[in-house]
Write a protein that binds this DNA or RNA. Structure first.
Lengths: 155, 155
DNA sequence: TTGAATCCCATAAAATACCATGTTATACCA
DNA sequence: TGGTATAACATGGTATTTTATGGGATTCAA
């Protein structure tokens, strides 16, 4: 039994004509062990698909339910965007899920997909787009490194 | 057996001449597994139908009972509106429910309906109206994103 | 008896489960 | 450490099931 559950690594898989793609074995193992399902939705911040465990969304739903701000308009809007877009993706016996047109289009994915681990979440990118994004992120982190270092030293 | 119960995704279904519409399969599965019924009412905030599990309304009733704000006029009014409007909608063997004139009129639905997941609830919209509403919400969330991001980082 | 609601059957399309295979990664043993 | 046996994995293809939806039959109440 594993103690921690993190989506990690960067995995390239093929997307076939039907939109089927193998979920990385490690990701499947996590969902199986926690007996929960994988949920995917369009990222709000980038042209990619975002995935997480259904448990995570359930947690979010509970938080919203118990919030004193129950009738808050912002939260009402957010739930529409998140839950309206998300969907469970149950993988078959060979470990594949079938991505929808909507998701594929948003991420500009055609025949290849990259799974990028993000800890509690993961993302699915078009390989070309991910290459650019990774370079961009790397550059940004490099630039901010002096600041990060300073903060650490203060602790 | 599923662990969590969330209404998700956005599904377009036809409303036939008799007013019948298929409840999305996943929504049906939730009601079945929890052996509870689907309840619908006119949304208080938007021109759409709102639906949830009968369990959820029961929970709401209990919360209001236990609330220190028991004699709050606002809550009194809200409960009047919701419970006065709500009705169970049992789906037939093919998974369809029959929406009432009152609900259809409120949501301006004629021959097509969009089911929009909201976690513990869902909404049913006229496709055109939903299109506009989604654009509106997306714009608003984007505008408020910096604030949301700050809140998240504080967690 | 007439109109409306409910139930049941039929069908086409789409989603899902299953089987087969080549390749890669892992485990095991000398 | 090197080499081989074994298991796991991604992926192509096919079979089966599920789902939405049209139409008709039946029931119930006004």
């Amino acid at each position: 039994m594993r103690k921690v559950f993190l989506f990690m690594d960067t995995i390239f898989n093929k997307v076939d004509a039907k939109g089927r793609v193998s979920l990385p074995a490690d990701y499947r193992a996590i969902a199986k062990e926690l007996s929960t399902e994988i949920v995917c939705y369009r990222s709000l911040n980038a042209p990619c698909i975002e995935g997480c465990l259904e448990d995570s969304l359930d947690k979010l739903a509970t938080e919203i339910e118990n919030s004193t701000d129950f009738f808050s308009e912002t939260q009402d809007n957010l739930t529409n965007l998140i839950f309206g877009d998300a969907r469970r993706f149950v993988f078959d016996s060979t470990g594949r899920i079938m991505l929808t047109e909507k998701l594929l289009k948003h991420a500009e994915i055609t025949d290849m997909a990259v799974f990028v681990g993000k800890g509690r979440k993961f993302q699915i990118w078009n390989p070309k787009n991910w290459e650019k994004e990774e370079a961009r992120i790397r550059a940004e982190v490099m630039q901010k490194r002096p600041v990060l270092k300073m903060q650490k030293e203060q602790e």
